[in-house]
Amino acid sequence: MRKTLSVPVMVVCAALSLSSCVAKRHLVNAENNIQRLQMDSTQMSARINTLEQNVSRMEASIRDLEANRTSLQQQLSATRQEASSRLQDASTRLNLSAAQIADQQKRLEYMQQLIEQQRRATQELRKKVSDALGNFNTEELTVSTKNGKVYVSLQENLLFPSGSAVVNPKGRQALGTLAGVLNSNPEINVLIEGHTDSIPMRGRFADNWELSTARANAIVRILTDTYKVEPTRVTASGRAWYDPVDTNLTTQGRAKNRRTEIILEPRLDQLMELIRYGEEGTAGQ
């Protein structure tokens, strides 16, 4: 009977011992799992922190990029406005320059027309004077053009006795003929220049300056008082022997130098006004 009872007890004890071992193993496994889960949780938290830091940096970068984009847009807008303003200014200047060029071209063309008119007027005047004085020979007077002017050169033997400023009758006749041309062409200015040779004066005149000026004045008096040429058109001057046309070393040369030149110049009022306007316009730019 005792042997029969001991076997079940042994079985129960064995079962209890086995059960205790199984529970302990489960407990150890559970603890290990908990430790792994805790480690995983720690690692996950670290990764989350890292990701959050990355996100923060990316958000900061995005804000910087947005700020840069805004700044660039503002700079681009300002640049466009400045470029547009400069383009408008350049366009305005270009249009103004084109208008100025066109105006200059018109004035140049008009000036060329005036110059051509003056040239034709000078040639016509020369022909009128030459035709009017055709009865006088070349030893007495010559008619030529120079620098847009008509030069009537009258030799001393036609106008004056030697050393005198009194015009002789033939000289008066020549001056009367010339005055007729001047009175029919009131737009002509008249300059009378007296010239001598280099031989010093002896007599009533102090020197060649005085003689040349007296002769020019005498001709002015005849033209204005006797033949009624408008005095405002006439100017007298004496050049003495300082503007010779030939040498003063020979008799023939000195004879050519003793002359009176009547210089006829068409008025250039329109041309001078156009030039003055151009200079004022240029200075005002």
Rank of each mutant, 00 (worst) to 15 (best):
L51T: 10
E279F: 11
L108Y: 09
G238M: 07
A98F: 02
G238P: 07
V150T: 08
N137C: 03
Q38S: 10
M39Y: 04
E156K: 15
L96Y: 15
R36P: 00
R204P: 15
L211R: 13
N68S: 09
A102I: 01
S144C: 07
S198A: 15
L65D: 12
E210H: 14
L87P: 00
T251W: 02
R120S: 12
P161A: 14
Q74W: 02
L87E: 06
E66S: 11
R2T: 00
I48T: 04
N185A: 08
Q270F: 01
A240E: 10
M1E: 08
E109H: 13
G194F: 05
L27I: 03
K128P: 00
G253A: 02
I275P: 03
E279S: 14
R25P: 00
R2Q: 01
T142M: 05
S41M: 08
K146D: 15
Q173D: 13
L158H: 01
E280I: 13
V129Q: 08
I34V: 10
L37E: 04
D64K: 05
E273D: 05
L65M: 11
V152E: 03
R57E: 10
Y277V: 10
L159H: 08
A83W: 06
G203F: 01
T251Y: 06
N32L: 04
S198F: 09
D89W: 00
P169T: 01
N189K: 10
I192G: 13
R254L: 06
K128S: 12
T145Y: 04
I192M: 07
T122F: 02
V9D: 04
T260A: 12
T232L: 01
S41E: 13
S153M: 07
Y110L: 09
P8K: 03
T145H: 05
R259D: 04
Y277P: 01
P266S: 07
S153I: 11
E59Y: 06
V22C: 04
D40P: 02
D243P: 01
M111N: 11
E109L: 14
I101H: 03
K228D: 05
V11Y: 01
I263R: 10
G148E: 07
